[in-house]
Design a protein around this nucleic acid. Structure first.
Lengths: 99, 99
DNA sequence: TCACCATATAAACATATGTTGATGTATTTA
DNA sequence: TAAATACATCAACATATGTTTATATGGTGA
């Protein structure tokens, strides 16, 4: 399971935040499409995708010459959101609802 | 309002993740207490606290010689969690529940 | 006022990170 | 097989980041 730290590190870059936003909306995108949207060079995009992949936030699906990347929504929910909810929990929320 | 990017950037460091975890549990801590828990030098801790403060994740309360830091749980919830929930939303979740 | 404590800030350094240009690899098409 | 496409990887560089040492600031108590 990806670590909280690697996930936040991956999301601590505006380019990668844009990538996950796009993947969230579009569902699946090949590298060349992401390049086009971001107006960035191919190695730069590949590098950011590698960082996101290493953090467990995206996964590739190969289809012919193309590699389609998708967002791992379960990782976002089960690791990142779960951590933040634990952190942001108000004292009373651990035992009772509605304060 | 703090930006999503600065928040994730701030949380992309294991030391700062530990600090927010401690603040979440203890409610309020002075710098010297954090130094003690982390076994780190004072300038290093101050630097990390400055990063967290700049991101809007913590705020200081001065009391005599001490400065007590607290976690801004509302920022965590309203900015970071809100962003991630939007990102992690499954297609059907935008219009119906339990899909 | 002087010494002490808690903290911030600045300078210096090593390491990490993001971007670019060049090259390698796999797949498709002619 | 050769050329073209999509992508990964590597080397090089500039910039950002984290840590340490030294110094400054502000409150406390003698």
């Amino acid at each position: 399971m990806p670590s909280v730290n690697s996930i936040f590190k991956a999301l601590g870059d505006p380019v990668r935040v844009r990538i996950v936003e796009m993947l969230s909306l579009n569902g699946e995108m090949c590298v060349c499409k992401i390049m086009e949207e971001l107006s960035m060079t191919q190695p730069a995009v590949s590098h950011h995708l590698a960082t996101l992949k290493k953090a467990g936030l995206v996964y590739p699906r190969k289809e012919g010459q193309w590699i389609h990347y998708s967002l791992c929504k379960d990782v976002v929910a089960d690791v990142a959101i779960a951590f933040l909810e634990r952190i942001a929990k108000k004292p009373c929320e651990c035992c009772c609802k509605g304060g």
